[in-house]
Design a protein around this nucleic acid. Structure first.
Length: 483
RNA sequence: GUCCCCAUCGUCUAGUGGCCUAGGACACCGGCUUUUCACGCCGGCAGCCGGGGUUCGACUCCCCGUGGGGACGCCA
């Protein structure tokens, strides 16, 4: 076990297969938090050893997204570091020298079995109710046979020669002791026939070379830990601390997948979920402080986080709660910041927000209605658009009572020199008294005329945003509507 | 099928043998506020998977079930 004397070094090691998955973000976040908490180093390493799955541009996209969330890495392909390269496809020479060591020490062996045979033996073992695994046929190959096969250019893989006796017992920070019988651990392929290493080999070699102290990753890796430990020990390397995170789940409790909802971090960011909210929400999936506190900034999480408080059971990704948190952050954070973050959505909608004083006021009220910033435009556009009224609206506005109210307001407002919320409040109160009307019969036509809807912010807020002249104009436009 | 992991309100979770008449949050319901809506505030509904032990005493410890998930790839 590593102790406090050791400098903490952790890594997030995604594959560049497209977008950043929310599960990946959670893994990245926990690694990041652990590093920050202990003044350690957070490393980004790209695991692109599967050429078939690598997608051009995915790497850049991954880095951009990660950076946007604020989980800045200390070492990685874009920022460099003392332990590079940080892209596995650029480390082929390294894997070559280490696999040779394993070959020389007899811990690994060439295998020339083809896919067809592999499938056949697995099927047979499954039929015999045994765990499907390689039967070790090629272990016995002589040096000459191997050389001969190699000379003839036969495709080969290199397998781990995993000893089948006894059991491997290891510690995991989340799961405590885990025991796995060695007889069911397969002779894992370490080098594929295209010469690339598999995850199991590359990650162990890299984790050691990059001096990783704690491996914080998803629970799906738990059952391959014995292979990894055997590799560390074969090389005589220190085994890092394992931390296997509970899985993120769909509503039906299966492993979180895109079939059942949005799992791409980019898409949440595109919709205008605040990174603050997304990170806070995701931190609570599998981690919780001892008290009842739930709202944390990234900095506060860095302080509060600890591996010991990570949960064992999988956590359902609950969009409802994310939405609640999204709204909470939009209302809580500085309005100027929210306005700034919202800007691009208004530009997309072609709305002129150059009057920044008005824009700030609009955001101040519109943010009460949304949980992500893409929603804010629909609650703000009435402050900018010219009014269009439905047939129903026409009916209401055309009523005698409504016309009386509008006329009154036009005149009263026209005489106002100041229109602070307090001023307008007083005016409204007086108006209702003077007109002797029911509240609803006053508020609905006025709000409809100003805002295009019977429901929405209160009249003082509305007029405070429009200013007297624009308010009067809207009121008289509504009054003189053609039926 | 084999192995591994897991199990508190619908969901995220607190709880490490007596502080539990099981706490908080989301959602839901009700009230207040707003003569609108939203926000906000207050309140309510709702849970220890089952069965055996251990113990004076189990949500907490052990065993067995059951349920869920993961792994079993020349994917990560």
């Amino acid at each position: 076990m590593h102790t406090g004397n050791n400098q903490v070094r952790v890594r997030f090691a995604p594959s560049p297969t497209g977008y950043l998955h929310v599960g990946g973000l959670r893994t990245a976040l926990f690694n990041y938090l652990f590093a920050r908490k202990h003044g350690g180093t957070f490393i980004l390493r790209i695991e692109d050893t599967d050429q078939k799955r690598s997608i051009p541009g995915a790497l850049e996209n991954l880095i951009t997204t990660l950076t946007r969330t604020g989980l800045q890495h200390d070492e990685g392909p874009d920022v460099g570091g003392d332990y590079g390269p940080y892209i596995q496809s650029e480390r082929m020479d390294i894997y070559k020298t280490y696999i040779q060591q394993l070959l020389d020490s007899g811990k690994a062996y060439y295998c020339f079995c083809d896919e067809e045979r592999l499938n056949r033996i697995r099927e047979e073992m499954r039929k015999r109710k045994r765990p499907p695994m390689y039967d070790g046929k090629c272990i016995g190959l002589s040096k000459d046979e191997i050389a001969d096969n190699l000379d003839r250019g036969r495709p080969f893989v290199i397998r781990l020669r995993y000893p089948k006796e006894g059991k491997t017992v290891f510690d995991d920070v989340v799961r405590n002791k885990v025991a796995i019988d060695n007889s069911i651990v397969d002779d894992q392929v370490l080098i594929k026939s295209d010469g690339f290493p598999t995850y199991h080999f590359a990650s162990v070699v890299d984790d050691h070379l990059m001096k990783i102290t704690h491996i914080i990753r998803g629970e799906e890796w738990l059952s391959s830990v014995p292979k990894h430990i055997f590799l560390y020990e074969s090389f005589g390397w220190e085994v890092p601390v394992f931390v296997h995170l509970p899985l993120l789940l769909n509503a039906d409790r299966s492993k979180l997948s895109k079939r059942q909802g949005d799992v791409s971090v980019e898409s949440y960011l595109e919709k205008g979920y605040l990174t603050e909210a997304l990170l806070n929400f995701i931190a609570l999936l599998g981690w919780h402080s001892a008290d009842d506190r739930e709202i944390y900034s990234l900095r506060e999480l860095e302080e509060a986080f600890s591996l010991e408080r990570i949960n064992k059971a999988g956590a359902v990704f609950d969009l409802e709660k994310l939405n609640w948190m999204g709204g909470t952050y939009i209302r809580q954070l500085d309005v100027a910041y929210i306005a700034d973050q919202s800007r691009r959505f208004f530009e997309e909608a072609g709305i002129d927000i150059s009057d920044s004083d008005k824009y700030l006021k609009v955001i101040g009220t519109a943010r009460d209605y949304v949980y992500c910033l893409s929603m804010i435009v629909e609650h703000a556009r009435m402050f900018y658009d010219t009014m269009t009224f439905s047939e129903e609206d026409h009916d209401l506005l055309g009523q005698e009572g409504s016309k009386r109210v509008l006329s009154y307001m036009i005149e009263a407002l026209g005489g106002q020199e100041t229109w602070s919320p307090d001023d307008v409040s007083a005016l409204v109160k007086k108006a209702i008294g003077d007109l002797g009307t029911k509240g609803k019969n006053f508020y609905f036509p006025v709000r409809l005329a100003l805002f295009g809807s019977c429901h929405g912010p209160d009249i003082p807020t509305l007029i405070g945003i429009f200013g007297r002249d624009e308010a009067v104009k809207r009121l008289s436009d509504a009054l003189h509507l053609k039926q």
